[in-house]
Design a protein around this nucleic acid. Structure first.
Lengths: 401, 401
DNA sequence: TCAGAAACTCAAGTTGATTTAATTATACGG
DNA sequence: CCGTATAATTAAATCAACTTGAGTTTCTGA
């Protein structure tokens, strides 16, 4: 009889690692903090915090700021994240664009490269992505020792027969392709891959409007549509890494046929592709989001018709997410141009009655993402950093041999 | 400026508490285990496990079984949960029934009391529930010292204006009523309250088909409909304690009007109340689930018609849950009689294409709950136990003063 | 019968947080 | 301008819980 793996125990070493992360997270969400303030926030003793901060400063992750005078007592020395403490590369691959950025520890973009692609297969994309990485490293003269890793965002779902590589919103030929392994082989740098919605959720959580939230949903409107789920302070990825793939939930039974074989899928109504299709473009595979922004500005009647039709399915999706997950808020973003997202958001009220409809709330039910079009590539860049700094309770568990 | 509360640090004390829970959880999911086996499973040293087990045996939570001979080496002494290590009371309140049970540490029901109610208000229900507790304690001659607490399950959502006390599937007058506080005042025992779906999910996770799962969704079909979410080894309750309230998600835009004001809500199609309504009963407020079981056995044509109509919305709900949460499986259960649930489950195939449609899966996409009609009241009884034994990483965090 | 194996125990060792008591640097009140 | 209250920080000693390594026990199998 084989025993089911159990949740493993913990020890001082794991606890230490947890506390290091907690300190970084406290500074990240609050900005520069004195050691005494960190001690109060984390319920750890000031001595412990002093030891941890000393270590982290030594490691180059934290740096002291100017002392804060003006109050009684010995002036506090605030510490903040040291931007130069490390760098990471973020990659994003989509139907028409491959983007690569270098991000420092504070999330500032230090370099950005863009390359056009055309619904690339792995064979086409992998050398291009590796070349982008090389260029970024060369351009920034990056010290490889300070390069924490590569994070990559691309459309999901992963590994679902009949869905991953099928339909106009999917990239062809990626079914079963070991993206991370291959890119790691080509670049010699550790690679983490996430779907674009999850990457965007991380970006928004680290640098955007979700900075202080414990539970939120990021609705990524791109070529298709997906959600990134941040629940109870943790990214939730699902048992097969495909949580949040709500582009293919049925919101209109018997509605528009979808590439996945179902009818009335959400992304047939709310996505770039849905808008292109509604506009009856001659070549929807090569349309650009910028076009939608122009049409919106022009008050184009067909585009207005799409907007009007997209609002109710979007409202319905928000309703479903609110009822199912009771998040603090739903954040809208993605490749869809910001003015279009704002136009959609502006038409959402009145939202449906849901468990979010309480008068006692402080955050609006729906927020528009703050970090703009590069949210997910910055979020992707944050993947290697995130894994180093977000308190992951998994880490408290000892690795089982 | 007020600082956002940060995730707090941890220390030896918290780590110890975590490890105690991990040991109990390992035995609970695997059955009796020797100390050496626990050490291997948890990655803790055998000495540590010996210390912990000694403590837990002292406390009466664990008991040694007969030594296991037959292998080389010193024979192992397996330890199992001591059923008499503690007791808890489970309560469940619904439209027509109040149930109370006594459960021992192993989840065995030691006593059960049932009382009829009629859509009770708090003023009616609270004395009754307190009386049930008194009777249970008297009947079982329970040692109050070994009574871990009271867990109560009732329909959600909680605290949503226009939803908590509105409509035929809601209980009237409970909006804003402090159930736990009041019951605690009446009985003098600590009380935990959860919605029925969440309680059922706990029951199924501790004693039923979800015993070894890390992520699953329990779909509770009762007077209304709700989901209990167990994600990544933790119960997910939502930011306002209302996650899983999917009875009111819209699955048929413009469909049947619902008490909440929306149209086409899931529970208008899949719930006891939906079946009663479809059958055009003269007094649907006082119909009983047993009636549905009879009609199913008789092959009643109107009931068959309801079944046929309920299947697609249910399939759609499963699709939504799978796509949004990517659980290992979806478990069906609730007040709906088991044969009816099995009839529904039998008609679900073919399920929609989702991220769960992978050939590599070991668990079926949909399971019928194992623990029967008392799943949620047993789950409720487990609430005080669960909070003592399930490794909750929250516990690793020091309480902030 | 005895070597090997596995479970378990004992006693010291290690680690990292806590406690307690200084020490330092500032504001404020007189 | 000075003394005191206040708050941050540091230093040294202490403590709690896990780990290590060397036994000890009790079995199987040759």
């Amino acid at each position: 009889m084989t025993l089911k793996k159990a949740i493993s125990g913990t020890n001082l070493e794991q606890a230490k690692s947890h506390n290091r992360r907690v300190v970084i997270e406290a500074i990240r969400t609050n900005g520069a903090l004195s050691r005494a303030a960190i001690a109060r926030l984390t319920a750890l003793s000031s001595q412990t915090i002093s030891n941890i901060v000393e270590e982290l400063e030594e490691a180059g992750l934290l740096r002291p700021e100017a002392t804060l005078k003006g109050a009684r007592g010995q002036p506090a020395v605030p510490y903040s994240i040291n931007p130069d403490g490390g760098y990471s590369i973020g990659l994003q691959l989509d139907h028409q664009l491959a983007v690569g950025v270098v991000s420092d520890l504070s999330g500032t973009m230090r370099a950005r490269i863009e390359r056009n692609v055309d619904r690339p297969t792995p064979a086409e994309a992998m050398p291009l992505l590796a070349a982008i990485c090389d260029d970024l490293i060369a351009n920034c003269r990056l010290d490889r020792k300070k390069l924490l890793g590569i994070g990559m965002a691309m459309p999901g779902p992963f590994g679902v027969e009949g869905m991953t590589s099928v339909g106009p919103t999917a990239l062809p030929g990626w079914q079963g392709f070991p993206v991370a392994d291959e890119l790691e082989r080509l670049t010699g740098i550790a690679v983490t891959v996430e779907n674009d919605a999850t990457a965007a959720a991380i970006g928004e959580r680290l640098y955007g409007v979700a900075r202080n939230l414990g539970s939120f949903v990021y609705l990524f409107i791109g070529t298709g549509l997906g959600a990134g789920l941040f629940l109870d302070g943790h990214l939730y990825k699902g048992s097969r890494h495909n949580a949040g793939e709500i582009g293919h939930i049925i919101v209109r039974p018997g509605g528009l046929a979808c590439g996945c074989g179902k009818r009335g899928c959400l992304e047939r109504y709310v996505s770039l592709r849905a808008a292109y299709d509604k506009l009856d473009l001659p070549d929807p595979d090569h349309a650009s989001p910028a076009l939608l922004e122009e049409l919106l500005a022009d008050g184009d009647s067909r585009f207005e018709a799409w907007l009007a039709e997209a609002v109710e399915p979007l409202r319905q999706a928000i309703d479903i997410l609110e009822m199912a997950l009771d998040p603090e808020t739903v954040v809208l973003g993605g490749f869809m141009p910001l003015p279009v997202i704002e136009a959609l958001a502006g038409r959402l009220e009145p939202l449906h009655l849901s468990v979010s409809s309480t008068s006692a709330r402080t955050t609006p039910r729906v927020l528009v993402g703050a970090a703009g079009k590069d949210t997910s590539v910055l979020g992707a860049a944050a993947l290697p950093i995130f894994s180093e700094t977000n308190p992951q309770f998994d880490v408290l568990q000892k690795p089982v041999a």
